[in-house]
Amino acid sequence: MSTRTLAVVSGGLRQPSTTRLLADRLTEATVRALGEQGITTTVEVVELREHAHDLTNMLLTGFAVPRLQEVLDAVVGADGLIAVSPIFSGSYNGLFKTFFDVLEAGSLAGMPTLLGATAGTARHSLALDHALRPLFVYQRAVVVPTGVFGATEDFGASSSTATGRADDTPAIAVRVDRAARELAPLVAARTARAGRDAFTDPTPFERLLAGGA
């Protein structure tokens, strides 16, 4: 039985956090979908709140303290990413942005990614596609088509019917399941990435002199 790792980043600020609730729903569905393909998944959950000070310090000093570096390494090294932010002022919150700002450029390239967002009402739901998605496209992550937006009312909607609300939006359980089924095959297909380590395999100087990299 093969294994994959899934990093889950939650930008929720309160505890308990609705953002984390949504992240957990997305995670369970993804783990289940991978399980159906015979894959065991190791999940690494990152609550950004716990790293808020370290992230600010990293912005200022340029380096991560070890407990933050472990988290950064875990996310970058995962086979898939679920990233969920609360929507503040029309976009992800600042803490969520900070986390993805301090990652080394290019380190999420090719990363299968599922996006989620939460807010008080569904009026903020376009932030998912107008704010979160461009951030991850910039990072060259592979973002699945379905993003899942969880408004407060979703947590009271029925999951037993296909339609959760009067406006014909499918129930959150249906959207979560659809998104997870989009993410799972990409995570399953992820093969080991053997990136060149410039510290063990440096570019010979003759090539640098000749203008190569």
Partner: peptide
């Protein structure tokens, strides 16, 4: 790493500022 490589190629010295960094 290219700068460490450069110092090594010429047999020059390599200095790491060290301060401000782990």
């Amino acid at each position: 790493p290219e700068i460490a490589e450069q110092a090594a190629y010429y047999g020059d010295g390599f200095f790491h500022n060290n301060i401000f960094w782990p």
